[in-house]
Nucleic acid binder design. Structure first.
Lengths: 209, 209
DNA sequence: TAGATTGTTAATCGATTAACAATC
DNA sequence: TAGATTGTTAATCGATTAACAATC
């Protein structure tokens, strides 16, 4: 499944970077500029564009408005996607209140938790009890869920989510959750990311003390 | 730099998975078990072990205790690493209060923010004003920082961090921050991750509607 | 024009997978 | 022993990079 995740991640990154460069007043842009502000190389940028049939003008670079439109078309960023968050602990609550998503047509419309202290059905983004999750997904036709629960709960919640119709899961729990092939599961292991950073810093220190 | 990030991420994952399997009572373990609970393949597990000189016994698999010890040795998980978090907004506050790190010898010892409302120097993990950051880093010999500030502030904070002695940065801001080659910068683009998940779910829907 | 940049092909590089001999 | 699993080599696969002709 994740065959071309890397290229899609880069295209999304280009799109996000271009919006910012546009705000700064850029009208024309070169593969070199894009690469620099996306953390990749000009050759990579041109290659990615080539694969998806995006072309600029030789010598003149790319028109930033046209580029953004083309990327948005490829990336299907035309309609709003509703997302729910399972687990309203520290991380879950943070994501629920994260403002950056809405700009990109992503709307977190509800949170769910098993702890009655966390529940607040009248908040701007309501937090419901886990019991109401399956029904909510079906009623609102939700396809995407974010899991921020502890390890122990993750697989059971995954099963319920998929049963109710969820097709994509962003998993922040350390659990290796499993589902049928057609459901897409992407993991973000915060702990492992931080551990690997520490590893490489220590390794570099050993090399040149 | 990130040459072998993938293999280190997997070794860390194995280690984390093994601790859990140990708690479940496993004494011997096979590459097959490890692969299954880490989301990889048995061949990959054996290959990774082979690269780092870890061996088990043919037919008998691996002794879980010995394996954990070897992995911890390779991964340098013997001493506690202190980490600071810059930005005490939703995400920053969540990470500061995230309990899962401490088990892995990672201690978040302070947060920093520019907003005086966020400051609380007497909290269990104190939040200081940004002005005190450089001095704090030097005084406490901090090497690792996590950035959760908005885009606009990220590069300037990065410069200050590096100037003060930080060697590794985990960057949650959407900015492409830059530093000297010897400083390790790892990005986690939450927005892009979620967008890519949505992309693939939509793409799959088109394939089989 | 001269110089710079695109677009694409071919070469390289590295990581994963397959396969299987060794052996417990 | 027979069967299962490791450890390692070779084959495959895919992604990145280099190079350069086309051309604005």
């Amino acid at each position: 499944m994740l065959v071309n995740k890397k290229i899609i991640m880069r295209l999304l990154q280009y799109k996000n970077v271009l919006s910012r460069l546009k705000k700064l007043g850029f009208i024309k842009i070169f593969s070199d500029n894009i690469a620099d502000s996306s953390g990749t190389t000009p050759a990579q940028v041109r290659k990615d564009f080539s694969v998806y049939g995006i072309s600029g003008s030789k010598r003149g670079g790319y028109n930033i408005d046209e580029l953004i439109i083309e990327l948005n078309k490829i990336l299907g960023k035309d309609k709003i996607t509703s997302v729910i968050v399972i687990g309203a602990g520290n991380l879950g609550a943070a994501l629920i209140n994260y403002k950056f998503f809405e700009k990109e047509n992503i709307k977190i419309i509800a949170g769910f938790d098993i702890d009655s202290k966390k529940i607040n059905e009248s908040a701007p983004t309501p937090i419901y009890h886990l019991d109401k999750m399956a029904e909510f997904i079906k009623k609102n036709n939700i396809r995407i869920a974010v899991i921020t629960t502890p390890h122990i709960a993750a697989q059971q919640i995954t099963d319920t989510l998929i049963e109710a119709g969820i097709k994509g899961i962003l998993n922040f729990s350390p659990a290796q959750i499993k589902g049928p092939e057609e459901v897409i599961i992407q993991d973000i292991h915060l702990q492992t990311e931080l551990e690997s950073l520490i590893y490489f810093v220590n390794a570099a220190k050993k090399e040149r003390p």
